Simulated assay, not measured.
Amino acid sequence: MTSKPSTGCLQHIFIASALLLCSAVIFYMYYKPTMSWLPCSDTALPKQDVCTEECLRVLEVENQTQIITDCSAVQEKTPTTQSPVLEKEDTANPHKPEIVVLVWKWPFGEQFDLESCESNYGIKGCRLTLDRNQLDKAHAVMFHVRDIGGEVSNLLTLSRPPRQKWVWMNMESPAHTPQLHGADDLFNLTSNYRRDSDVWVPYGRLIDISEKDEPFKIPEKDKLVCWIVSNWNGNYRRVGYFNELSQHIKVEAYGRHFGRYINKEDYAKVMSSCKFYLAFENSVFKDYITEKLFNTMRLGAVPVVLGPSRENYEEYIPGDSFIHVDDFKTAQELAEHLKLLDQNQEMYEKYFAWRKDYVVQHSAFGQEHACRICDHVRRYKTFRIFKSVNKWYWS
């Protein structure tokens, strides 16, 4: 006599059949969405939510785990909960088109490697070119503002694709940058040291120390305070401050004005031999913190800075890594502080505490701008108009 299946197992088989049916519905929902007889018809929105709720209602029964333990046949037929369509969407890697950036001119005539965006910055899919025949194909054109002063009228006549980005690139402060008259509507992106520019490229930055970096050791010193200056102008604040400071402390000054020219080979040697270096900017503007600071830190001297506020500097480097002239009421007070540090090695060495965690990384002028412009254009597809670069930069 053949035994009949128990009522409990029949119930479990029924539930499993319902699960199989619901899985079939989900399958047809993704691959045959136009078939109106499906439970998820075009009139039921959203489709995925409706079908998912129907399936979940089947699963909302008591002793759900008992289905697996009591009916092995049902276990074998239980459908997978993974969706092959969703897996394809998650793992797909669609090919991204190459971004072309036309470098209109070498900035200041300084050439750089056009094929190093990926190796130097990890930016893939970029092609930099100097070929102006590629103008109609370029996604962006980088103009170094200091090199196009007499070309504005010609640039205004060029035919450019409507979505092409023309990038105003510059690293000089407003005091040393000419305004381009008639170019208010010429550019739609900016690349600059200022953090409110579209493509921000500072003169330098501190990055985490790596295993390949050698442990830092303060270089041997035989000079107290140094300054190397090429651009001497009696109207600059830094010149007036130097003249006063040098009355209270000996400053080893180099440059054409002092008849002590320093070449590139001797620059690092002289800088490293100084306990303090006057990293004085030629003009004072927000975020205008140049290689003078970062060279000093990299070569093992303590920077004495004259530029934007201390708060602005501390947005770039630790507050205990530099001395700001504004921390002292007079240049004489600063001189006395430097003499104190000269006599107290422990206090002096505290200015190098940051070297345990960071190293200096310089920006590559021109090259980094072009590569980061490429990355920006790839990332951001939104419409952008820059009505007046002159108003933005000189306001």
Results as ranks from 00 to 15, higher is better:
residue 360 V to D: 02
residue 112 F to G: 09
residue 377 V to Y: 06
residue 160 R to A: 11
residue 207 I to D: 11
residue 31 Y to F: 15
residue 233 N to P: 01
residue 78 T to G: 00
residue 133 N to F: 03
residue 288 Y to Q: 10
residue 81 T to E: 01
residue 154 N to W: 10
residue 68 I to C: 08
residue 342 D to Y: 03
residue 149 G to Q: 15
residue 98 E to N: 13
residue 36 S to D: 12
residue 270 V to Y: 07
residue 145 V to S: 05
residue 364 A to E: 09
residue 99 I to R: 10
residue 41 S to K: 04
residue 52 T to C: 06
residue 43 T to N: 15
residue 289 I to V: 11
residue 244 E to W: 02
residue 39 P to H: 03
residue 63 N to I: 00
residue 358 Y to G: 00
residue 293 L to Y: 02
residue 321 S to G: 12
residue 189 L to I: 05
residue 39 P to F: 04
residue 2 T to R: 13
residue 389 V to S: 12
residue 179 Q to M: 13
residue 98 E to T: 15
residue 230 S to T: 13
residue 130 L to W: 03
residue 274 C to D: 03
residue 392 W to Q: 14
residue 359 V to M: 01
residue 139 H to P: 02
residue 257 H to V: 08
residue 89 E to S: 04
residue 236 Y to W: 00
residue 324 H to M: 05
residue 230 S to K: 07
residue 18 A to G: 14
residue 88 K to G: 08
residue 214 E to V: 02
residue 213 D to W: 00
residue 9 C to W: 07
residue 284 V to Y: 05
residue 191 S to L: 04
residue 394 W to H: 13
residue 84 P to F: 13
residue 236 Y to M: 11
residue 335 A to E: 13
residue 55 C to D: 00
residue 197 S to G: 14
residue 216 F to I: 07
residue 62 E to V: 00
residue 283 S to R: 07
residue 303 P to V: 00
residue 168 W to T: 00
residue 206 L to G: 03
residue 227 W to C: 09
residue 301 A to L: 01
residue 308 P to K: 11
residue 187 F to S: 09
residue 355 R to N: 07
residue 257 H to M: 11
residue 236 Y to L: 08
residue 369 H to I: 03
residue 169 M to E: 01
residue 201 V to Y: 05
residue 57 R to L: 05
